[in-house]
Design a protein around this nucleic acid. Structure first.
Lengths: 95, 95
DNA sequence: TAACCAGTAACGTTATGGGTTACAATCTGT
DNA sequence: ACAGATTGTAACCCATAACGTTACTGGTTA
């Protein structure tokens, strides 16, 4: 039932992009055109990947913005499912 | 180059879910457990699909929350790409 | 020791989701 | 034509979140 909680995209960013290239947070932030604080927040899971940030990451690391936003979506969805236990919604489908 | 602007998920929701079932906005909002105003905003493209809303839509219409969030992601990404013309980002990839 | 690096707290700005209430316009059925 | 339902939307409130600057603190290293 795919019950594994998805990693925060910031972790992936750190482990797959920043660390392999031996980049400091300061350097990376500068290259991305954002503040050191903002990147730090992302890397430490205290901020999500915004659409604009996904574009920046895509350009910097030559990846697709969608891949970043997809990870973020999986993460957010998981969080939301945990947060709201069972919402009361009437079924409206034909089934 | 896939230069078509993605439809707002609200349009899709209206055309594929609300209208086919002959639901009024008021009824649908009530069934979803949200305010009429909130649903109206979504249907008219003035609000996006939040993760929690995607869960509600998934339960109500027996669809996957991911499908709604995916549409929202495509829409947001396209908007962001239009908004920020060309952001200045240094390339950090190995290539 | 001095320089750099990272996390983070404090503060402000802007944007967005969501709720309630209320009003005006439009259907719709009797 | 009149009454009720339906809808968009404005006004106002609240909470959250992204982003920035400044500044402090602790750790690492040349």
């Amino acid at each position: 039932m795919k019950m594994h909680n998805p990693p925060h995209p910031g972790e992936v960013l750190k482990e797959l992009c920043i660390e392999p290239l031996n980049l400091t947070v300061t350097e990376a932030a500068e290259a991305l055109g954002i503040s050191r604080k903002t990147l730090s927040a992302i890397l430490n899971g205290r901020a999500g990947i915004s659409p604009e940030m996904a574009i920046r990451l895509g350009k910097a690391f030559d990846t697709s913005p969608e891949s970043w936003l997809n990870q973020q979506m999986q993460y957010d969805l998981w969080q939301a499912e945990q947060a709201v236990g069972n919402i009361e919604v009437k079924r409206l489908s034909v089934a």
